[in-house]
Design a protein around this nucleic acid. Structure first.
Lengths: 113, 113
DNA sequence: GTTTTTGCTACGAAATAAGTAGCATCCTAG
DNA sequence: CTAGGATGCTACTTATTTCGTAGCAAAAAC
């Protein structure tokens, strides 16, 4: 496995030396699949393989990597009923909620080419 | 230049075949630097090179690529005073605002290891 | 009319993601 | 038991993305 470090709020972060927490968010969420994974898990808890299927059959190696990162970041945890968002992860998704409405606006704006 | 396609809300999108707009958001914002670029531009308009510096000296080839993507997505535009967010881009950053507060919570939660 | 600055391209190297195969463990049915 | 099947995950190869440096053409500053 190619080792990658998990961006955490207080650490130095990829794409930023400032250590500002929001940059860590951008770094973490900016990695392919991370947002998608959180999104899918916000709908329901899923097993590894179910999660993989939901994410268009993403490769298990990357999924495994991401699951570890997001666990390190305390955004999800493995439970009896599968992978599941933590309180923290849930609250993140909640703050991202308005994005759905924005996406709709965006869609109509881009449609008017 | 390695060609990459810009995720737009109605198109088929990397990481999703559903074409749901929010997936396009995740795809676009999930690319390295895109969030950061929008963030920096939300603070003030910047020239290409100034933007590059703000983004920790990211390579100009990638920056150019991103600027094109974000322009295609109508989130930024080149103006007399440099690159600048469009109304749409500004509104996106606005919906992402609560993220700053969340990041602070995250920081303190991760601190309590 | 030279320097500087700016926007940007080219291109090889490094990092990250994808894709496929498969193994060890844990059920569950017989 | 024990033969399946599902699950969580690792190993490894290939493809794609990102980096890093060099540098050029056009506009601006001198």
């Amino acid at each position: 496995m190619t080792k990658t470090t998990t961006p955490l709020p207080t650490r130095a972060v990829r794409g930023s030396t400032s250590g500002v927490a929001i940059m860590a968010v951008f770094d973490l969420l900016g990695r392919k699949w991370n947002m998608r994974i959180l999104w899918e898990l916000s709908q329901q808890p899923l097993s590894f393989r179910a999660l993989q299927e939901r994410c268009d059959g993403m490769s298990p190696s990357v999924l495994n990597d991401r699951v570890k990162q997001l666990s390190d970041a305390k955004l999800l945890a493995s439970t009896a009923s599968g992978y599941q968002l933590t309180e923290l992860g849930l609250s993140l998704m909640h703050t991202l909620d308005p994005l759905r409405a924005w996406a709709a606006d965006w869609e109509s704006a881009c449609g008017q080419v």
